[in-house]
Design a protein around this nucleic acid. Structure first.
Lengths: 256, 256
DNA sequence: GAACATTGTTTCATAATACGCAACAGATTG
DNA sequence: CAATCTGTTGCGTATTATGAAACAATGTTC
């Protein structure tokens, strides 16, 4: 675990531990983390003890496994409160959910990934995938395509992972095809993606602009493909575009 | 900054820094944090640089001030996903909001404070106070009173801060009066609080029980006192009690 | 505009802290 | 029951994080 930066190593190690906890693997043993991070288990144990004392992780006494703790939620709440895109979008989201009866998200770029910073859930029963805080790739999600489409080609290239991962048989990884998609997004003002990241899920997203004209967030309507497949999801274009226009105006955007 | 525990000191310092960022003061300067935490500013600067490199804080380049970063949101999303009370409650919350047209929260105890772990927003315009991740005291909030009421007197005593802070002229801090309130909560099965924590805000809360019978969360309907004052908020008792009964049943609770 | 104050960052020497090792106690497995 | 696995703890010491000082940039005051 060589640190190529001049950060405080033990803090970096703590954060690396926290980062191991994911949706896919929310619980870890000391020894698993030690293997994964190539650190001695006594170091892991000590770091976890510190994190637990501060409420950032919690140990299941029966199993000995650790999971992330509620202390993180309180901090994240403050972080979320600082996001203009979230604050300005919120008053508009309920009416969009009323209209479309599907889940709506606000998504921003963090590094080269998308992060969901708000979610208003569909009233309909469905397995939920757009949870708050979830990180997703850019090129194969509707929100991500919107967030990339309005960037310069150089910026876009820098933001795309290399190699591009194929998630489903609908994932587009061909550079020319992707560029065509981005052009289409800019022309239409929205992106539609069917099952390119997760099978059985579809989404439509449109951009929120701030007062400088930059695209700072995407508003997404998403749900199961059996409800939002081709020919069905298009009905949401008008209310989605109207919503992002209102949010963008509230952000101080003036269309040229 | 003497650590009375045997944690990793530099990690503790990083967390202490993160904890300074609150709703009341979401931005800090290096020198402010140094003063607040009695650490040298060069230590603060270095720790913040490490946290920034990992996305947990972000510096405003124009002002030089730091605020919490989106990296925390992603971690908190995983933490939230691990909370049974949140997961089990979610399918029930939209219909409760439909009925009451006010904001609904799921709240749990963390240490001796309440933390909101879910929120479905009211469709009505109002200044929002029950944000996700927000920490609030127990004794003067509806959720907190519910979460305390079903504890043993010893546990309750240990969970109450000393001294009890007075937030408004409606805050009850007299021990006998508080105990009377807790008894009332247990008899009624819900708590109603008008302006005891924040002027102009009222809330009603009821308990969610798990399969062992323990109260593990409170479901709260809250809003402005002008809409939910005495004589008005009582209309929400039946739907609230029905909702917590359903959630508790889903948690495996069987009423004695 | 000059002088001063404030800010956040960087360098450096060194002391303190975090480290890995080893031991331990308890739980699990075959 | 023995072997293995687990997470924790004590220990010596080398590595790391520290505080002081210097610095450059910005802001404030007269």
């Amino acid at each position: 675990m060589a640190s190529t930066n001049n950060g405080v190593q033990s803090i970096e190690r703590a954060i690396a531990i926290l980062r191991c906890f994911t949706e896919a693997k929310p619980e870890w043993r000391v020894t698993e983390l030690a293997d994964r991070l190539h650190l001695h288990k006594s170091s892991i144990s000590r770091i976890l003890a510190t994190l637990e004392q501060e409420g950032l992780v919690k140990q299941n006494e029966e199993t000995g496994k650790f999971h992330l703790g509620v202390g993180l939620v309180a901090m994240a709440g403050v972080a979320l409160g600082h996001l203009d895109a979230r604050r300005v979008s919120q008053p508009h989201l309920n009416s969009l959910v009323e209209i479309c009866q599907e889940t709506v998200n606000v998504t921003i770029l963090d590094g080269n990934e998308c992060v969901n910073i708000e979610r208003v859930a569909s009233p309909k029963p469905i397995r939920y995938v757009g949870w708050l805080g979830r990180r997703t790739p850019t090129y194969c999600t509707a929100a991500g395509q919107v967030l990339l489409a309005y960037r310069s080609p150089e910026e876009r290239q820098a933001l795309l992972p290399n190699p591009l991962v194929v998630y489903t048989d609908k994932t587009v990884v061909d550079a020319a095809a992707l560029n065509h998609l981005f052009t289409q997004v800019r022309q239409q003002g929205y992106a539609i993606v069917h099952e390119a990241f997760e099978e059985g899920f579809s989404a439509i997203a449109a951009p929120v602009h701030d007062h400088t004209g930059q695209v700072i967030a995407a508003i997404t309507i998403s749900g199961p493909t059996f409800r939002l497949g081709p020919g069905q999801i298009e009905q949401f274009v008008p209310p989605l575009l109207a919503t992002v226009a209102r949010i963008s105006a509230d952000m101080g955007y003036r269309e040229a």
